[in-house]
């Protein structure tokens, strides 16, 4: 049963306003907001990977982001996690400056603090999120160390606790993730992302490339950690089944823009935008 958290009285835990990521200088045509057929300008070939993206994530909510490959989902996610520089826009995290300070305008040190204390990220490719030659516990400890942890015993205990929470036996905590299966690597990534009790968890295509039974395990895990850790989740996927199973609300992206938003059931059962209709009918 899905829970809806978009109560207007509740303040969003993460608010993104006018997020734009542009590759290229732009020209008079595209910079003045002229309509683009694709995400690149026909005159100057500037790519608008994300174009004026607005979204809110409420406490305890799972917000799904769907769209085809190249629609700007991952770019948006990585921009929020400061992996990519943002061209324009602002983002407000409840825990940072009481939700009034634009975190994109933060200093390098402040961004580091936000990344390490307030957000967790799980990448589609575990190689981006894990050090494959270090132990599973070491990978989790890295996040704790980055947040100032200097107690070996407590960090190891926390790593063991988190690995147990994602159903990895404590006996394997000294093994490097390169020895693990794809599903296990994703679970190590999830436990690493949860290490500092973040408010927001960013999941980028976490089930892509996994077989169905492993996918089901990871999805169950995400649902469970939302309840256990009370974390808000931004879930990027191009798999509508995953979105239907997990997301409370969903936004649909196309060519760097959000073209439709609403409750997940509403989006999937009664899509309004022609692209969303095409997407839903091609997959279901």
């Amino acid at each position: 049963m899905q829970t809806v958290k978009n109560n207007k009285k509740e303040k969003p835990i993460l608010e993104v306003r006018g997020l734009t990521v542009r590759y290229g200088q732009g020209c008079d045509y595209c910079l003045n907001g002229q309509p683009l057929l694709k995400n690149s300008c026909p005159h100057c070939k500037t790519v608008w990977a994300c174009n004026d993206v607005n979204l809110e994530l409420y406490p305890g909510e799972i917000l799904g982001v769907v769209g085809e490959s190249g629609s700007g989902k991952s770019t948006m996610m990585k921009s929020i996690y400061f992996d990519f520089p943002v061209t324009e826009g602002s983002a407000y995290l409840q825990a940072y400056g009481a939700g009034k300070a634009n975190m994109f305008a933060a200093t390098a040190q402040q961004k580091k603090y936000i990344r390490n204390h307030m957000m967790g990220m799980v990448y589609q490719n575990p190689v981006l999120g894990l050090r494959m030659d270090y132990s599973a516990a070491g990978n989790i400890a890295e996040k704790l160390i980055a947040a100032g942890g200097r107690n070996f015993g407590s960090m190891t205990a926390r790593a063991s606790q988190l690995l147990e929470a994602v159903e990895i036996l404590p006996g394997r905590m000294k093994e490097p993730p390169k020895n693990f299966s794809g599903g296990m690597q994703q679970r190590v990534q999830i436990s690493k992302a949860l290490a500092n009790n973040p408010q927001v968890l960013l999941l980028d295509e976490v089930t892509t490339g996994l077989d169905l039974s492993v996918q089901a395990k990871v999805l169950d895990l995400i649902r469970r950690i939302r309840q256990e850790f009370g974390v808000s989740i931004l879930l990027v996927s191009h798999d509508l089944a995953v979105i239907r199973m997990l997301a409370d609300r969903t936004v649909v992206m196309l060519e760097g823009k959000i073209i439709e938003r609403g409750l997940t059931d509403q989006i999937l059962d009664d899509p309004q935008h022609p692209y969303t209709q095409q997407l839903v009918h091609s997959l279901l």
């Binding site: 580091k112 270090y134 132990s135 070491g138 400890a141 890295e142 160390i145 980055a146 960090m155």
Partner: peptide
């Protein structure tokens, strides 16, 4: 410049763990 020494600490952590 940024005082980002986590990888160094992680190396010591790995030594202790293993």
């Amino acid at each position: 410049a940024e005082g980002e020494y986590s990888p160094m600490w992680l190396t010591l952590y790995e030594d202790l763990l293993r």
